[in-house]
Design a protein around this nucleic acid. Structure first.
Lengths: 145, 145
DNA sequence: ATAGATGCAAACTCTTTGCAGGTCG
DNA sequence: CGACCTGCAAAGAGTTTGCATCTAT
């Protein structure tokens, strides 16, 4: 769902809230599956059959650049995340599924900047392993996207 | 440099230590730049001018599958890491450079499995920000690969 | 009215694959 | 010698872009 604040933020930058754009943002925010562009495209087409894949890509990239979405590189392409707040990720090595993990209480390692001269703007811990389904004998095994 | 253990591990699995393969592994291990396949290709060609990009890809993928290298997805393609031990990463959002960061003393968050049912096999913290060069006024700005 | 957005198709980049010939052990 | 590996070229997959048309404001 797009809040009024979001709309204003878009408009302040000379950007329009078009129908495809609204639906694309809706779709990403409505799932926690860290969807690929292709996934978003399929979902958006259910509501807007004539939308093009190029429009989905253009909007995902733009919405990420404007801070409405997070973008993340994956083995088989980009994924998008409607969850902007601080959180970690668990990636299942067997099926490729990415789950959100609540961030631990104490976040920033404040020693890093001092040690290295890097300016740390953000950080996130990535966990890798096997999800519940894939741990079961005969569980899901091939990467589903 | 390839240790005897590495050679044996390869041979045990029916794999050969060919000239391209040896040089590719050398090149990745000789840099801390988390190189792309194209970067490795350029470097390997200095020593082996007739090598093909396909061979570089095939070997990088194979060496990663065998555990000699780590593979990582990036915005503009795969990157490879000769550093197999536990360490974190700092990614410069301005220039795309990825640096290794020594891992903090206490590693695993052992609460995650209990909380979620996930089997955690590995984890790594990713820091994002600006590197020394890009922090300087007039510093490097475009993504270099 | 008009700058920004869209749809379509073509172009691009990165990566993988088929195959004939070469090489390590 | 035989299984594995390589180079080449072509194919695939994901993403971006040019352009005429459309639309939100």
């Amino acid at each position: 769902m797009i809040t009024n604040k979001s709309i204003d933020t878009l408009r302040d930058r000379g950007l329009r809230l078009t129908r495809p754009r609204r639906i694309i943002l809706d779709v990403v925010r409505a799932t926690d599956a860290h969807p690929t562009a292709a996934f978003v495209y399929r979902r958006v087409r259910r509501r807007l059959p004539r939308v093009s894949l190029a429009t989905v890509y253009r909007n995902l990239r733009m919405l990420a650049a404007e801070g409405f979405l997070a973008e993340r590189a994956d083995t088989a392409g980009m994924r998008f995340d409607g969850n902007i707040g601080p959180h970690d990720h668990f990636t299942c090595l067997a099926c490729g599924r990415i789950d959100d993990v609540p961030a631990p209480a104490q976040r920033t390692d404040r020693r890093l900047p001092a040690r290295t001269g890097f300016e740390v703007l953000d950080h996130r811990t990535e966990y890798y392993g096997r999800c519940r389904v894939c741990r079961r004998p005969g569980g899901r095994s091939s990467r589903t996207r």
